[in-house]
Amino acid sequence: MSKEDNAKKGWRDIPIGGLITESGNAEKYHTGSWRIKRPLWSREKCIQCLFCWAYCPDLAIEVEDGLVIGVDYAHCKGCGICANQCPAQALEMISEDKSDVNDDKAEVDHEKKTE
């Protein structure tokens, strides 16, 4: 048993039957670290067709009032479908290594927004 397991709740303190009562809490699990490339979204080029939102496997295209406002880097795994399907080249895949965006900062920002 690892240290991590010790820190987890014991059998008396979790719901019976393996039930998960906090729906959608997978949001707290960040899959953004899987990425080797990230999509950069350009507000200027975006024509708001929303195809990226419809085709994103990670539910990582952020939309407000029917308009794309950015990418949720906490969950985006970097598959690149959005960039591949964008008819306006408003999404560009760039290597995480070459990214000039501070990764940590992006994730922290995202968390702030969702809290």
């Binding site: 397991d5 014991g10 059998w11 979790i14 019976i16 039957g17 393996g18 039930l19």
Partner: peptide
Amino acid sequence: DQTTTYGPLDLQDFYFEHKRQ
């Protein structure tokens, strides 16, 4: 009012606790 997930994938870290229950 209370949406619940039944039958998740329960791995090394919690399966045993559920059996103990």
